[in-house]
Write a protein that binds this DNA or RNA. Structure first.
Lengths: 216, 216
DNA sequence: TGTAATGTTTACCAATCGGTCAAATTATCC
DNA sequence: GGATAATTTGACCGATTGGTAAACATTACA
């Protein structure tokens, strides 16, 4: 006899681990393309290779699946920003932040699109997280950048918009991948484009942010 | 007696103009948030203040509505890039391109999101346009940028990634508006943030792209 | 090996989906 | 004003949606 699903939280079976993993993997495929409203449980079930009621045995509702997926993805997503270090020197910190974010766009494009879809829809499922933990983390890093500015290590600029511009330029290669490929053409659409992007962005941000040469 | 809809193309009534306008306006509201799959005709009908069969009198299918909307939006969307002028000097051209794109993000955020949604889904409805007209336009402007580089007016860089980075940084303020507001907090979420963004981005791109001061 | 807990499937449900149809209403033009 | 064309609506259709119930199958464990 099937047990009330609450019991699952007491002890997790091997099968539960595997199947939930399988489901979230498929859900990432589907949600990242079509967004929450545009995705169906049947689609996810097909990708996961399981029956729809079987999915709903592990996640009571479509919402629960989406929530579990977001929770799992968000933590890793902020890792590069957390690694942003006040002690390092600005140039190498900015460089490696750009690198890391570009690597994530290359290696985890679905995660990026899942997040982008959520933003486009007004962040109905993660608004609290944006206003809370994310804002706090960004505030903290903005303070770091301000100390760099005060000590003359980088040019005066708005640290928030600096962070936004790194986010947007790097995530662009995941979220707008199809446009990037179309514009670059088949020949330049290989993995090499990430190296080109990295070179360009590092040049842009380093030259753009170094202290004024013009002894003003 | 209703006439076959093909007849509409012969002569357009005043009512047709008005209602189609009304419908596309509502469709923009809905599609830009939920994407094509996630939007329903009923939603659009409600926003438009008309009955569903009435919508379908003007647009035979949901696809037709979406196509008409995209067609109407895309032309204006590329206007700033078209205005990018080879004759002007690089600094002011880049400055005003950033300004124009930021103004569009501020004044037409739904259009930006409609486009972003389409990209996230793999551009099923506009792929040909990306590979054709858009690529040609970008190729043309990339050539302009290359002449600037050759004549030493701006630093050496990949013109395509330069264009991508201007697109992404500016559109970010429309597509990720909810995140920007959440991170900046209520106090800095007013229209002033567009001025701050403009200041930052112009500084970033101008300093980042001016020719090397270090006589290398 | 037996049995209870866990996992899976078939059949199904009400609500919503995109879309049709014919009747009713309104605008247009002589 | 009346005929005719254009517009609008309510009722409806089959397909798909998110989700359920219960029978069935499998696993874990004594």
């Amino acid at each position: 006899m099937a047990i009330p699903r609450a019991a699952k939280t007491l002890r997790r079976t091997r099968i539960q681990e595997e199947k939930e993993e399988q489901i979230l993997e498929a859900a990432l495929d589907v949600f990242s393309v079509s967004g929450f409203r545009g995705s169906t449980i049947d689609q996810i079930a097909e990708v996961a290779g399981m029956s729809k009621p079987n999915l709903l045995y592990y996640f009571r509702t479509k919402e629960a699946m989406h929530r579990a997926l977001i929770d799992r993805v968000l933590f890793n997503w902020l890792e590069p920003l957390r690694a942003f270090d006040a002690e390092g020197n600005p140039e190498s910190e900015i460089r490696s932040y750009i690198r890391r974010k570009l690597e994530m766009a290359r290696d985890f494009p679905r995660e990026s699109r899942l997040f982008a879809n959520e933003m486009l829809q007004g962040a109905p499922h993660v608004l609290d997280m944006l206003k809370g933990p994310l804002k706090e983390l960004v505030d903290e890093k903005a303070a770091v950048i301000r100390t760099w500015i005060k000590s003359g290590k980088i040019a005066r600029c708005d640290p928030y918009h600096l962070i936004f511009s790194i986010w947007s330029t790097t995530q662009h290669y995941a979220d707008f991948d199809v446009q990037v490929r179309a514009v670059l053409g088949e020949e330049h659409s290989g993995d090499g484009r990430f190296e080109d992007a990295a070179r360009f962005l590092e040049q842009l941000f380093i030259n753009g942010l170094l202290p004024d040469h013009s002894g003003a």
